[in-house]
Simulated scan of single mutants.
Amino acid sequence: MGNREWIAFANEKKCNHAKSLIKSGFISWVNTANFKVGDIVYLFMSNTRNVRFKTQVVADNCKREDSEYWLEQAPMDITFRLKLVAEYSGDQLNESVLIKHGFKGGRSLQTPSYKNENLMDYIKSIF
């Protein structure tokens, strides 16, 4: 099986993921997802309600290295390292547009997902 492409929810109320990605080029992501090195992870940002970043899993079993960007006490879990690949600033990946391509939102965001092929194909076409 090849590398997967995921959509994951970046909760900006807990951590300034955007600032971490822009300033350091990566974020640490808790190692509870089923990511593998090489996978692509698109981040749906909680504050702007859109997919803004394309990242790639470049390492696993890492110590958290983005603690300075957390707005609360950063958990010291074992993490994946997600490297910034691209940033999107248009309006074609806003929540209202994503819904037209199968995005469910709500509680479905609690767990990273790769299974919605229509949605993932649309996101890939924009990046």
Rank of each mutant, 00 (worst) to 15 (best):
L109H: 06
A10V: 09
I40K: 04
N34T: 10
R107D: 13
N11P: 05
K23P: 02
W70M: 05
Q92D: 15
S46E: 11
N94P: 01
N50V: 07
D121S: 10
S108W: 08
D91V: 03
N16T: 06
W70S: 03
L93A: 00
K63T: 04
G105M: 11
F9Q: 08
C62N: 03
A10I: 10
E117I: 12
G106F: 12
L43A: 07
E12I: 08
A18P: 00
K104Q: 14
V97N: 01
K63S: 08
E87I: 07
D60R: 14
W29D: 06
Y114S: 12
F44L: 05
Y122N: 07
S28V: 00
I126R: 02
D77W: 12
V97T: 10
M76L: 12
S125V: 05
H17C: 08
S125Y: 07
N16I: 03
C15G: 02
W29G: 04
V41A: 06
F9W: 13
K104N: 08
F26M: 06
L84I: 06
F26H: 05
V30P: 02
R49E: 14
F26R: 00
A59K: 14
N34I: 07
L84T: 00
N47M: 10
K13Q: 13
A59D: 13
K124M: 02
K104S: 07
H101R: 11
I7A: 00
F9H: 13
V37G: 06
N61R: 12
A33K: 05
T79D: 04
M1V: 10
S96D: 13
D66N: 09
V57Q: 02
K63H: 08
Q56W: 00
C62Y: 03
L84D: 03
R52K: 13
V57M: 02
A59T: 13
Y88K: 08
L82D: 13
I123S: 00
F9P: 02
K83W: 07
Q56G: 05
N61K: 14
V30R: 14
V51N: 03
S24D: 15
R81M: 11
I123T: 01
P112K: 04
Q92E: 14
S24P: 00
S46C: 06
K124E: 01
N118K: 15
N94F: 14
M120H: 04
G90R: 00
C62H: 04
E12R: 10
G90S: 05
K23E: 15
Y122V: 05
T32A: 07
K124W: 01
I78C: 07
Y114M: 11
V85T: 07
R52V: 11
E87G: 02
K83G: 05
L109G: 10
